[in-house]
Computed example of a mutant assay.
Amino acid sequence: MTDNDLKDLLDREAMRINNIDFIDRDPVQFPRRFSKLQDIEIASLLSATIAWGNRKMICRDCDRMLALMDNDPYNYVMDEGYEELPDMNIHRTFFSKNLRHFLRGLHAVYSRHASLADFAKAEAIADDELPSWKLVASLNRELAAANNGEADCRCLPGNLTTTALKRVNMALRWLVRNDGIVDMGVWNVITPS
Rank of each mutant, 00 (worst) to 15 (best):
D63Q: 12
L116M: 15
V77P: 00
Y74M: 06
L68Y: 03
F94A: 10
E84Q: 04
N75G: 05
D61W: 00
R60N: 08
A108M: 04
A67V: 01
M65S: 07
E83I: 15
S47W: 09
R64C: 01
R60F: 05
N98Y: 15
N89P: 01
T49P: 02
N98I: 15
H91C: 11
M69I: 10
D63K: 05
T93D: 09
H101K: 05
S115K: 00
F119G: 02
G105A: 10
W52G: 02
D70G: 03
F94V: 14
A117C: 06
S111Y: 08
L116I: 10
R104P: 04
R100P: 04
D61A: 03
L45D: 01
D79M: 10
L45S: 07
L116C: 11
D79T: 14
Y76D: 00
N98A: 12
E83T: 13
F102C: 10
N98T: 13
I90K: 11
H101W: 07
D63G: 13
M78E: 03
N89S: 05
C62K: 08
D61P: 04
M69A: 06
F94I: 15
N98K: 12
S47R: 10
M78G: 01
H91F: 14
W52L: 06
I90N: 01
H91S: 07
Y74C: 09
M78H: 02
L116G: 01
N54E: 10
M65E: 05
H91A: 14
D61K: 12
Y74D: 02
M57S: 12
A48E: 00
S44F: 06
I90H: 00
F95N: 11
R104Q: 08
L66H: 05
F102Y: 05
T93W: 00
Y74F: 04
T93I: 14
K97D: 11
V77T: 05
K97S: 15
F95I: 12
E84I: 00
Y76L: 07
V109H: 00
D63W: 04
V109M: 05
R104D: 01
E80K: 14
P73K: 06
S96M: 11
L45K: 08
C62I: 13
M57I: 15
C62Q: 13
D87E: 13
K97M: 06
S115Y: 09
N98E: 08
H91Y: 10
I58T: 12
S111E: 02
E83L: 06
G105W: 08
K56C: 01
I58Q: 07
R100N: 11
D63C: 06
N75Q: 12
I58R: 02
F95C: 05
M57Y: 03
R112D: 11
F119L: 10
A67W: 00
D70Y: 01
A114L: 12
A120Q: 06
L46W: 00
A117D: 09
L85E: 03
D63P: 01
F94Q: 11
Y82V: 09
T93Q: 00
